[in-house]
């Protein structure tokens, strides 16, 4: 919907998404970066809601932020275990 509230919300969410993206790329600690990438896909799913695409929003939330973050952490832990 095009209501003014939605537009402002979209701008805020969008900026937040970009900030999280920059954190995801530049942060030194990997775990923080991974969480930031999860946050980016969360923001994206909210944007999808605003663009009236509920199905996609649910998928993005469940898979994008949920499962990929888990996979990232498992991978990170496995790499750490191989390391030492």
């Amino acid at each position: 919907m095009e209501t003014n509230l939605n537009i402002i919300l979209a701008i805020v969410i969008g900026v937040l998404a970009l900030v999280f993206a920059i954190i995801a790329i530049y942060h030194k600690k990997l775990s923080v970066a991974i969480i930031a990438s999860g946050a980016v896909s969360l923001m994206a799913s909210i944007l999808f809601l605003l663009l009236s695409a509920p199905d996609v929003a649910m998928t993005e939330a469940a898979i994008g932020s949920g499962l990929s973050v888990i996979i990232f952490f498992y991978a990170l832990s496995k790499i750490r275990k191989q390391h030492d």
Binding site: I25, E60, G64, S68
Partner: peptide
């Protein structure tokens, strides 16, 4: 390497947003 994979997810997320916004029609519902 992990950062590269993360960047991939970012590119994917960006593309998905692009696709949905190109499919959006004014003032319409799901």
């Amino acid at each position: 390497l992990i950062k590269i994979v993360i960047s991939f997810t970012l590119v994917d997320a960006g593309i998905h947003i692009l696709m949905i916004s190109l499919g959006y029609l004014k003032n319409r519902t799901a």
